[in-house]
Design a protein around this nucleic acid. Structure first.
Lengths: 221, 221, 221, 221
DNA sequence: TATGAATGAGATTTCATTCAT
DNA sequence: CATGAATGAAATCTCATTCAT
């Protein structure tokens, strides 16, 4: 009786294998730098077999994005508690972002794919698109909420607009990663990228925080 | 004897023509969205002729980058006077950046190509590479100088490092443009992109400025 | 012992299911417009299972043809009675053809497949092939008989040859349908196709009838 | 100075070569039975080279159709003189059709491609499409005119409608050829096809002619 | 018996680059 | 100097059929 389940599990594993290898390819060569043939070679499957598991190339990207988004958002969320003030939450969010980047480079995947599948994001945010449809909308919501909280509790500057700044923040995050993805892997020195991200986020934190915020909340290094 | 010179001049004109038309193509369709055939059509030259003037596709991009960098930097420089304080100069620099974007979209070209030709910039700044070799290094120098001035004259925060922040700033600029280039031209609404840039630059200005800076120097809108 | 029979019956039912669903697919998308995967989906069987019941794709078509031919011929035959004169029978035959087309579009199936499986029909009629082997030969026989009767009883022109004209007639029928099958279903307006068939059959009836035939026997509209 | 002209001529010859070889392939294997690779092999060009001469596969078909239509219509027209009565002209038209078929099999090409490029023809005749755009519309016009003349001069039956019958006629012509194209070339016995065409056209002629038409105008054999 | 899984062969199309004239 | 012509390599995707379980 276990047969069906095993099959199911194996099928799931194959999908995972494909995603996994594709992830590696993306990390290695960037989002544009791999073909279905490459994926076939990496997985030791035939090209046609790939199409048994995913409708087309984009569908693979989407699956990877969805999973990365899921784990990304939940990781970040786990670092934010209800007791935190807005600025604390924002600080924690960015810390988590950087930490996660260092650990899994999930952020690479997340952002790289997002930029391809939904290139108008975050320039245009489709009010009709809910978080359920496009994975990265979850993160946008999380940031907006965090900013709103900080404006309300007075730990962020009063004259900012949560939605607009959330867009700014998403764009910055995307963009850094986007550029980093371009680097050939040999040059893609984590330390340097993390330094860059920390630097930018620190400047922005300071630019967003209410005057008089404790120095320790303003640096991410 | 004027013959050789005329030839030389004509050759130079052809090169300019090719660059000019390629620029238009890039603006229209993005850095990845045009082929050598497209350039040939636009210039009314044959594809093979293009190879007489440029070794390959990348060489065209490089030439365009060089010219865009030149005009970009000199425009920005024209807006900065020696009398300005550091924060004033930084403010002026970003104002110019935004203005130039609105006018010529030169920034698109500049950044888009830079990101392709020198993807490790600004993550890695090659100390051996002088401004003379890679066009965009000029802008980097300009920003570094400006920041250094601000640190010295006390209009910027004292605990920032000019080189590091200059890298941050270059990266932000590149990145916004990079993402914007992805938008299909129909969606590439200048107003929205400018809003986004202004928003981000404002936050960063505030994050970099010394405490007590006049509000009017902190906003770019 | 009933087991073997049940098995046999079930096998037969599966075959029917496959044929039935394939018919629907053909009507929907034309004879070239469906894949074995489509059949598998429609029948809720696996692709491999299809190959247990039919040697290959063509074999499915053949089976459908056989069944369609059977029901087609018997329907037409039911409209022809021994008392009818030749011209009456021919008139009735075409009326039935058109009616059947309007009702079940069986004719589509019949002809479409015939044209694929036996493309030399009716150009070459294999004297060694009996009605038992190729399903559409039944219809050919029926038409020949009808024409012969009309020549004998003087209601059709005397200088026609039954076999030859039967071929002409089969070909016309096939051909109209063949072209109609090409139409995307949305454009496959029954009314228009019926008009076209009626028009052509009317002209041919008039061309075959003995002089002085009553006008009402010469029109099919 | 003749260089440009020679180039032009050679280019034209290449196009012709491609069309010619494609024609042969179609005659050999039918309209669906050849790939761009086949054309490449037949012409001893590379696949990519084909795309220098034709935008895509369909464009090759269209070019062949256009040429076949041209020569077909002009040949037919050459056989019709203003002095002819309607029935004489119709008779001549069909004679020419058959003769041309026997000589060049142009009709094959003409009809086969037409059926692919404009499958709704002649079921739906687009009033907005002029003869200039789709080559086969020329023939349709010619037939309509001929029929109209016959109705006017009393040599055809009075109760037919020129446009409707023209559609019938085009469809019959298309359809016979369409079916014949299916035949493997080895079986494609001209004599038999011609017999079939003659038979059908004769029946239709008799169905369209005014009563009392001379027998010799009613047969095409 | 039934099927999930796999695949080879093939289809159309694109494009940077080379080379003879 | 200029170019028309050519092409190899690659990309995405489809589909009838086979085979181990």
């Amino acid at each position: 009786m276990g047969v069906a389940e095993r099959k199911q599990r194996e099928k799931e594993e194959r999908r995972k294998l494909i995603c996994e290898k594709t992830r590696e390819l993306i990390l290695e060569r960037g989002i544009y730098g791999f073909s279905m043939q490459d994926v076939a070679n990496a997985t030791e499957l035939s090209k046609s077999t790939l199409y048994l598991y995913f409708e087309n190339k984009e569908a693979i990207l989407f699956a990877i994005l969805a999973e990365a988004a899921e784990s990304f958002v939940s990781f970040v969320q786990s670092r934010i508690t209800p007791q935190m003030t807005g600025i604390q939450a924002l600080h924690a969010l960015w810390k988590a972002y950087i930490e996660l980047f260092g650990k899994f480079q999930d952020v690479f995947i997340f952002t790289g794919i997002m930029n391809v599948l939904d290139p108008s994001f975050p320039f245009f945010i489709d009010a009709n698109t809910s978080e359920n449809e496009l994975p990265h909308y979850k993160l946008y919501s999380l940031i907006t909420t965090t900013l709103r909280k900080g404006i309300t509790d007075g730990t962020l500057r009063q004259n900012i607009q949560a939605e607009r700044v959330a867009k700014n923040v998403m764009l910055i995050g995307s963009a850094i990663i986007e550029l980093a993805t371009r680097l050939p892997r040999s040059q893609r020195n984590e330390t340097i990228i993390i330094q860059e991200m920390s630097g930018i986020f620190s400047i922005m934190l300071r630019g967003l925080a209410a005057p008089g915020t404790a120095e320790q909340l303003l640096t991410l290094m």
